[in-house]
Design a protein around this nucleic acid. Structure first.
Lengths: 218, 218
DNA sequence: GTCTATAAAGAGATAGAC
DNA sequence: GTCTATCTCTTTATAGAC
């Protein structure tokens, strides 16, 4: 990690400009929908620059994916530890799981809506093979949260708990990737919630889901 | 819709074999990850056959997407109507929304796990532009279910309801696309539920989510 | 570190023989 | 309806001049 380079007004080092352009284009079109030339044109740099600075397109992608996913998984573990130390319940555990996506927004150079799409792409794209760090991160997060949730909700069997956590991921992933399109789809009826509102809606929904009993009706 | 051609043992008309191979490959690798030559090689037909039978790769994709999405949306509307006629509640409405994915499994030539991945690809791939029929289908389904849910749950504001329905979609979409990978990821701990079990888990979870109150904790 | 030029492979599409 | 052969464009990657 060299230099803490900050991008101002679109003029950074070549390397930074490549990263910036890639983030923007991938957020819009996905990892598979963007070519090296799309990237270098958008960045205003030479085609050869990507291979010089990153080795290959694949490595550039890995770096960007890691840059967004690994800090999220790290923060998830940190927050969970804090919540457990304070004796938090389901809601606090869930928030520890979700909020790290929000922390990254402010820390990232990418604009809010773009960030959500980008991190959604990073989470969802199963066609890219993950780096070891990323895979281990997801595994550790899964284990830790399942353990924590099972401790507070011993009445839910462990296999069932895995599925419920999987559902929670679905809620948050869907919102990251497609949340920005909902307003258009609903012709404005879904409104324009700020991110804290969205987060608490997600947490409310998932919290109830985790606490649900079989066949509960109304 | 010509011929009701059924595929037996992998030997159908050229057109059928193209469709069959495309479904299989796209389920595995997504629409963007498959080339015309991948398809024609897997189908054992000539490269030119796709353009002869479908006009272009794009049109082949549109046909396949429609073949899986449109019947689901149609069945969603039919089932909703039936549920409303019988005075069903949240749970029944939700089931009307989710079960059509299951109905399609048996009706489809594709094997169960492949089908789920494929329909997940169809639902999630936002880079392909939808046909008018498909877009209208989603819009009508959205409107109808929001109306039905708002009638049974008048205490939930309409904007909030849109988000909750969006969360429900996230749960089911995530399960379609990645449910098959969960067992591996959890080293077997998530078990091997049959599809009825999975459906009722999804419905339980989403039902509770729809009924949730703000800031509910445990 | 950045450029041009080009290699080498793969993409979608089609003309024309059969 | 199916084939071969080919066109044209785009892809990633790199060699070598500056």
């Amino acid at each position: 990690m060299s230099g803490e380079a900050t991008l101002e007004g679109g003029r950074g080092s070549t390397k930074d400009r490549i990263v910036e352009a890639t983030e923007r284009l991938v957020a819009e079109s996905g990892f598979e929908g963007v070519s090296l030339r799309d990237i270098t044109n958008a960045a205003g740099v030479n085609v050869a620059a990507v291979n010089y600075h990153f080795g290959s397109k694949e490595k550039l992608y890995e770096e960007i994916q890691g840059r967004y996913i690994n800090p999220v998984n790290r923060e998830r573990l940190e927050r969970l530890e804090a919540v457990l130390a304070e004796g938090g319940g389901v809601r606090e555990i869930l928030e520890a799981f979700m909020r790290p996506f929000l922390s990254m927004v402010t820390r990232s150079r990418v604009k809010e809506k773009l960030y959500f799409k980008l991190v959604g792409r990073c989470v969802m794209d199963q066609n890219m093979d993950m780096s070891d760090e990323m895979r281990e991160g997801f595994e550790r997060v899964g284990e830790a949260y399942i353990q924590a949730l099972s401790d507070v909700l011993p009445e839910v069997a462990r296999d069932e708990m895995w599925w419920r956590l999987h559902f929670c991921s679905g809620v948050v992933d869907q919102t990251l990737l497609y949340g920005g399109m909902l307003k258009e789809f609903t012709r404005g009826e879904s409104g324009d919630p700020d991110i804290e509102t969205s987060l608490s809606r997600i947490v409310d929904f998932c919290c109830a889901g985790l606490l649900s009993k079989k066949g509960e009706t109304r």
